[in-house]
Nucleic acid binder design. Structure first.
Lengths: 138, 138
DNA sequence: TTATGTGCAAAACATTTGCAGGAGT
DNA sequence: ACTCCTGCAAATGTTTTGCACATAA
């Protein structure tokens, strides 16, 4: 299930991975496409989607399913939580303790087999907070 | 921000709210549309989307932004968490303690103004677990 | 009466997919 | 060589929107 065995090392895949690793933001597929296109102008958006999904399935990267309209991707695969700005949609990491015991608590309350959990905080990022405070904003 | 003051009480809105309150599942806009259409065959999908969004903004219902491809809606507005089945996409409530102190922990780790948080568990629901166990599944 | 809401259809997005040709092993 | 992968474009699925008509207050 987490095998990279049959994955060819194509130029497109290398560049996608490199570009994703360069940033600490959590770009959408389209943002990755824009980044990669600067180096590979002929790459197709479909290829970016296909490869981001494949890499996420194989565990090389993380596909972040937070609120908002687009999925986001993250080269940091260790478990961590995210915070999303309600104004601009930006997503950042939250460096707090991983709640290891929370799955057990949930297992007691449901008949699901529980695999994992994710916490998403919502709020307003520093940049947007400044904008809202500024007298220029209206 | 949470005012229902200017919202007319139309038949469409009453029915949407009633149908949503009938179920404990967390239907997508399209599922609400199907439910409502049995009583109001001429209602438009756009009306359902518009009203679900308005009701969510006014706090009458909850718009659930979990993983998966569609947003979901919930007539239960008290704070609670959700679990999503990775096989069939179904979403259920998790009746566990609300982690009131978690926002403070996150506030210490970010410069965001934190409004709220949501926890989404992922796993396999009882129905899909049975299917996977069954010798008929392959 | 009149501002707001509705139905319908088209548009706007995000994502997936089919296929002919291209490239890694 | 032989599969797997890519670019391109079309298709799909979800949500939003413009507009003429309808309706709650």
């Amino acid at each position: 299930m987490e095998s990279t065995a049959n994955m060819r090392l194509t130029t497109q895949r290398q560049v996608i991975l490199e570009e994703l690793a360069k940033v600490t933001s959590h770009p959408t597929a389209n943002e990755v496409y824009d980044m990669v296109r600067r180096r590979l102008p002929r790459i197709g958006l479909g290829t970016v989607y296909r490869n981001l999904d494949l890499m996420a399935e194989s565990g090389m990267i993380l596909k972040i399913e937070v609120g908002g309209t687009q999925k986001r991707f993250d080269a940091t695969t260790s478990p961590h939580y995210h915070i999303r700005c309600l104004e601009c949609g930006r997503v950042n990491d939250i460096d707090m303790d991983f709640q290891t015991d929370i799955n057990t608590a949930a297992a007691n309350e449901s008949h699901y087999q529980i695999y994992s959990h994710h916490i998403e905080f919502t709020g307003v990022c520093p940049t947007c907070t400044k904008k809202a405070d500024s007298p220029l904003s209206n």
